[in-house]
C-alpha cells in the first residue's frame, strides 16, 4: 500500500520532550500494540505505536522526530499500517498488570482503555524521569488502579517501576504487559521470570526498522531470528528467553550495539 495521507488536526504538548499529533483519519482496524510507519516527506519514515486510534505520541529523540516537531496543525504526513502483532487482548473479568516507562506509556494506553471497556481489572505501574514527563495520568487513572514513580522523586514515589513491581503479588494477574526503555523492560522481565509468571507476560520491543513488513530482516533478533516488525513488536516473555533482549540490538547497517 502507498502511504495514506493524513492532516494534523491538533498538536498537544504532553511534556517538555513529548507531543501528541492528532490526525484527521482514524486507523479503525489497529489493535493495541500495533505500529504505523510515519512518513515525514523528504526526511524519513519511522515506526510509531498509536497512542489513540487517530494519534501518535512522539518523544523528540532524533533527526526525524526533530523534523516532526517542526510541523504545525494543517501540515500533512504519510501513514502506512497498522503493522505487526499487537498485545493479546484481555478478556472480561481478567486481572491485568501494565508496567510502563517513559514514552512507552503512550503506546500502551490504548490497551488499558480496551481492557477497561472489556470489563477487565487494570492495575498500572507507570514511571518517568520526573513529574513533567509522566504521560496520560488521567487516562490510566480512569482505567483502574494507578501507581506512579519518578526517578528524581519530583512526584509520587521516588524510584523505578521495578521497585513497586517487586512488592506486589505477581501471581494474581492473568496477563502482564510491559512497554518502555529496553533496560527497564529487562529488569521487569527478570522479576517476572523469578516469580515464575513469564508465560503470561508480553513485552513491546523497539528495533531499527527498514522495510517494516517482515521481508528485509534488518530487525531480526538473536538467536531465533524473530522479526520485531512482523513477529512482534509485541512478544510473549517466553519468546525472549535466551534472546538478545536487554543485551544488544542492531543498527541501520546491521552492526551490533550493546545496551
Amino acid at each position: 500500500m502507498y502511504p495514506i495521507n493524513v492532516k494534523i488536526t491538533e498538536i498537544v504538548h504532553e511534556s517538555p520532550s513529548t507531543r501528541t499529533f492528532f490526525f484527521d483519519k482514524e486507523l479503525k482496524d489497529a489493535q493495541p500494540g500495533q505500529f504505523v510507519m510515519v512518513w515525514i516527506r523528504g526526511v524519513d519514515e519511522i515506526p510509531m505505536t498509536l497512542s489513540y486510534k487517530n494519534a501518535i505520541t512522539v518523544q523528540n529523540v532524533g533527526d526525524a522526530t526533530e523534523k516532526l516537531f517542526e510541523l504545525n496543525e494543517e501540515d500533512e504526513l504519510g501513514i502506512r499500517g497498522p503493522f505487526g502483532k499487537g498485545y493479546t487482548l484481555p478478556e472480561k473479568d481478567e486481572k491485568i498488570l501494565i508496567v510502563a516507562g517513559g514514552v512507552g506509556t503512550a503506546s500502551i494506553a490504548l490497551l488499558a482503555e480496551y481492557a477497561k471497556e472489556k470489563g477487565s481489572y487494570v492495575t498500572s505501574i507507570n514511571g518517568a524521569r520526573n513529574a513533567d514527563e509522566l504521560l496520560f495520568v488521567d487516562r490510566f487513572a480512569e482505567c483502574g488502579e494507578l501507581n506512579m514513580t519518578t526517578d528524581d522523586g519530583s512526584a509520587h514515589r521516588q524510584g523505578f517501576v521495578t521497585e513497586i513491581l517487586s512488592e506486589i503479588d505477581k501471581s494474581e494477574f492473568d496477563k502482564i504487559y510491559s512497554c518502555g526503555p529496553e533496560m527497564m523492560m529487562k529488569a521487569v522481565f527478570n522479576i517476572l521470570e523469578k516469580a515464575d509468571v513469564i508465560d503470561r507476560t508480553e513485552f513491546s520491543l523497539h528495533r531499527y526498522f527498514k522495510c517494516a513488513i517482515g521481508v528485509c530482516g534488518a530487525c531480526c533478533m538473536d538467536s531465533d531470528g524473530l522479526r520485531v516488525c512482523k513477529d512482534g513488536p509485541v512478544f510473549n516473555g517466553m519468546q525472549l528467553v535466551g534472546s538478545e533482549f536487554g543485551l544488544h540490538m542492531r543498527g541501520p547497517s546491521g552492526n551490533k550495539k550493546t545496551f
Partner: peptide, 28 residues
C-alpha cells in the same frame, strides 16, 4: 565499509509486487 543504506521508506507493498531501495546496508 559499514553502510546504513537509504533513508526510509525503503520498501512498499504494491499488491502486485514490491518496490524497494534498501541501499546495500551491511555491517562490512
Amino acid at each position: 565499509e559499514p553502510k546504513s543504506g537509504h533513508s526510509n521508506p525503503s520498501m512498499i507493498d504494491l499488491g502486485y509486487g514490491f518496490i524497494n531501495a534498501m541501499g546495500l546496508p551491511n555491517p562490512s
